[in-house]
């Protein structure tokens, strides 16, 4: 099993990764550290787990999809 990690918009460009897989992570914040090799996380970064908004402290399970993105600007 693994965890899918995705980056969108300006974060994708800053990190230089669109999506990647990591073997495991305890929390969403840990997933960021693993996927970015401990890159600094912009303070306004948002996170989603399995398509729902989440917190960086939230736990991650095998098979989860974690996404990181900046504040949204649609509409």
């Amino acid at each position: 099993m693994s965890i899918q990690v995705k980056f969108f918009a300006s974060l994708r460009e800053q990190i230089g990764i669109s999506d990647t897989e990591i073997e495991s992570a305890a929390t969403a914040g840990h997933a960021w550290d693993m996927a970015t090799q401990n890159a600094a996380r912009p303070t306004n970064t948002l996170v989603a787990i399995n398509l729902e908004y989440a917190q960086f402290e939230d736990k991650i399970n095998d098979g989860d999809e974690v996404a990181f993105f900046p504040p949204v600007t649609g509409g």
């Binding site: 918009a9 300006s10 908004y53 993105f69 900046p70 949204v72 600007t73 649609g74 509409g75």
Partner: peptide, 14 residues
């Protein structure tokens, strides 16, 4: 609906 969409729907403008 438009306020929720503007504030929370995952879209990004470049």
């Amino acid at each position: 609906l438009i306020e929720e969409l503007k504030h929370n729907a995952p879209f990004w403008k470049k």
